[in-house]
Design a protein around this nucleic acid. Structure first.
Lengths: 237, 237
DNA sequence: CAGTGGTCTAGACCACCCA
DNA sequence: GGGTGGTCTAGACCACTGG
């Protein structure tokens, strides 16, 4: 068999990905089955082994295949598949919804790390940090409350920035690339301050996204985003 | 320069990934800068161009680099980076927390698709579906409420399964591989039924995860998971 | 149109690990 | 020990697009 030229999957590797995925979805190859090895598939598809290898690695990353040396390639039994989503930049998010973006810094001060933040950033309790609280708005309606801690030890230039004038989110994105990030979703009832800042009722369920980033000097920033009630976060397609 | 053999990054491509990422984090290459082309880097690192290509493609997928033919490779200006997380299997999640898993099917019946579900599954309103409501428990405490709609048109075998005996989550995972999935996070105040099933107060903020999957025959299933208050979902590292 | 990334190939050697 | 995937290479041709 050769690759069907069908409604193009573009590259040969991509076409093999789609063909193999289809065989799995159609249960032609069932969960747990061992599939032919790379050399056989290379002959079947009429391509080099490296091309088959690339395709199967993509499917393995997706979680559809399990690959082991000597044991061969098997269809995953419990395909606990992965989802990806893009970490949004608030301003772009607001503007892509057709609204005018603005933000307001509610508080900015130096402050020693409280226990919870220190643990999340893996810093000693009481480490000197900068604490910011910002409201992000679309068409002057509150959209998201940002509660951010920044570690000057990891980003020395931050000392001289006035975040009342520059959006912290974007300044950090441009000046402090990170190596590693943690991201957590949860839900909380709006407390009095959240409710006031978001212009909503106390007790309303809020989607909370917490993110901490690190570079080689340590934690850069830890931020807790509270979204306006009803907001949804969706994975990429 | 050749690759440092350092505290192994394993493969050459992976070492190049780490070296380039470090140059960006150290701001040796700044946002917007054009970096040397593949051929130059291949010489610098002492490897074949294909190896550099693989490394740079990984960094481009991560969102750190922008690559265009003829224009070359640039450091992304707004690195809206991606996060991935693994879609959990409830039972494994409970058991990995050291608790005994059990589940209870609260309701199972055939039911025409209500408007919201039909739209989410891209089916005509009123399409014949199977509706399941299940409570998942750890050590006999409610952990998650699952509200699931299954489309027999996409998974004919489902007609003969008794989900009181078999966990729907796992049965589907094993018998109905999917091609595409949607995933959405939001927060809602517990309604009376959620509160009763989760053994908590009405109004408590719940993290909601909604997922819909498709194969080539159409939507397979759409499920709405309500987590016990305080639950967090975290990305992979 | 020419420089750059995208992809493929044939071959090679290696690393792992099951039998 | 031997079969399998993991990776690399040198070279080639192509596709896109910026100058």
């Amino acid at each position: 068999m050769t690759l069907k030229s069908g409604p193009p999957g573009n590259s040969k590797a991509q076409m093999i990905v789609e063909d193999v995925r289809r065989r799995i979805v159609d249960r032609e190859w069932q969960q747990g089955d061992r599939i032919p090895d790379e050399a056989e598939l290379a002959v079947e598809f009429g391509v080099a082994r490296a091309t088959v290898n690339k395709a199967l690695q993509i499917l393995a990353e997706e979680g559809l295949l399990d690959r082991k040396r000597r044991a061969g390639t098997h269809v995953t039994v419990n395909p606990a598949r992965k989802a990806t989503f893009t970490i949004p930049i608030v301003r772009e998010q607001v503007e892509s919804a057709g609204m005018a973006y603005s933000h307001r810094v509610v508080a900015q001060k130096r402050s020693p790390a409280p226990p919870e933040i220190a643990s999340r950033m893996r810093l000693p309790e009481g480490a000197p940090l900068i604490h910011l609280r910002t409201v992000h708005m679309g068409d002057d309606q509150p959209f998201q409350v940002e509660d951010r801690w920044i570690n000057p030890a990891a980003v020395p230039e931050v000392e001289s920035v006035d975040f009342r004038q520059v959006n912290a989110n974007e300044w950090l994105v441009r000046h402090a690339p990170y190596l590693r990030a943690d991201l957590t979703f949860s839900a909380e009832n709006a407390n009095a301050r959240d409710a006031r800042l978001l212009d909503t009722r106390q007790g309303h369920a809020l989607l909370i996204m917490q993110r901490t980033t690190w570079n080689d000097l340590g934690a850069i920033t830890s931020v807790r985003l509270s979204f306006y009630p009803g907001h949804m976060v969706t994975t990429d397609h």
